[in-house]
Amino acid sequence: MHMEQPQKTLSNLSRLATGETACITGIHAPDDIRLRLQAMGLRTGRVARVIRRTRLGPMQIRVGSVDLIMRRRDAARVTITASQ
């Protein structure tokens, strides 16, 4: 899948600004948390877009047809690479 492409800017989901999109490359978390985040839609290769974020609170993220709210601390576990 998308994994073979050379990874340009490696970053994580919590750094993404409102309106920006990126491609998910992986989740760095213990197994149970990783499986859960994947089952909720955060899968490698999917494109994520930040719908809204506030300075302190959680962020709203859209992956495919699913809208999620998640804390930045948890979003930081999701690595991304710039998507065109």
Binding site: R36, L37, M40, V66, D67, L68, I69, M70, R71, R73
Partner: peptide, 9 residues
């Protein structure tokens, strides 16, 4: 525990 929640329409 991660806080991740689906936001329904």
């Amino acid at each position: 525990e991660p806080f991740v929640l689906e936001l329904p329409p």
